[in-house]
Computed example of a mutant assay.
Amino acid sequence: MEELAAALAEDDAAEDAGMHGDDRRTCHTHQCWAEDCADQPMHTNPSASR
């Protein structure tokens, strides 16, 4: 869990510095690894609700 928390913080900082959100390794919305929720409707169809 500590590795995920560190990666979330790194991705947040990188995105604040100009990195495109699609380049994140983590999901800011779900607070998990991006690959774990890539198929969620919110990501595949942003207009869909949770």
Rank of each mutant, 00 (worst) to 15 (best):
A5N: 11
R25A: 00
A5H: 11
D23P: 00
D16V: 05
T29Y: 15
G18H: 05
A34C: 06
D11K: 12
T29G: 13
E3G: 02
H20T: 01
W33E: 03
N45W: 06
S47P: 00
D22V: 15
D12E: 11
A14R: 10
A17C: 02
G21L: 14
T29I: 15
H20C: 08
A48S: 01
P46I: 01
A6P: 01
D11H: 11
H28A: 11
H43R: 10
A14P: 03
D12W: 08
L8N: 05
D22T: 14
A17I: 04
H30Q: 12
W33N: 02
H30K: 13
T44Q: 12
G18E: 01
C27N: 02
M1A: 08
P41S: 07
A48E: 06
A14M: 11
A9H: 06
L4F: 14
A48I: 00
D23Y: 12
T26A: 00
D39S: 09
H20R: 11
H43A: 10
L4Y: 10
A5G: 04
D36S: 06
A17S: 04
C37A: 12
Q31Y: 05
C32K: 06
M1S: 03
H20A: 15
E15I: 12
D39T: 07
A6W: 08
T29K: 14
A9S: 10
R50S: 11
H30F: 15
T29L: 15
E10C: 04
H28W: 02
S49H: 07
D12T: 09
T44L: 10
M42Y: 08
T26R: 04
A17V: 01
R25D: 01
A17G: 10
A34H: 02
A6R: 14
Q40E: 07
P46C: 04
R50W: 09
R25Q: 03
A34T: 00
E3Q: 07
M42F: 11
R50H: 12
C32F: 03
G21R: 14
M1R: 06
T26F: 09
A14T: 03
R24C: 11
A6F: 03
P41Q: 04
C32H: 06
Q40V: 01
H20G: 03
C37N: 04
D23T: 03
E2F: 04
H43W: 03
S49L: 13
A13E: 14
A34L: 01
E3L: 13
A17M: 00
A48M: 05
A14C: 12
A38E: 12
A9V: 05
R25S: 01
C32W: 04
A7P: 02
S47Y: 10
W33C: 02
A38K: 15
A7K: 13
E15F: 06
D22E: 15
H28D: 07
N45T: 07
L4A: 12
A34N: 04
E3Y: 11
N45A: 12
A13I: 09
H43V: 01
Q40W: 12
P46V: 04
D36F: 05
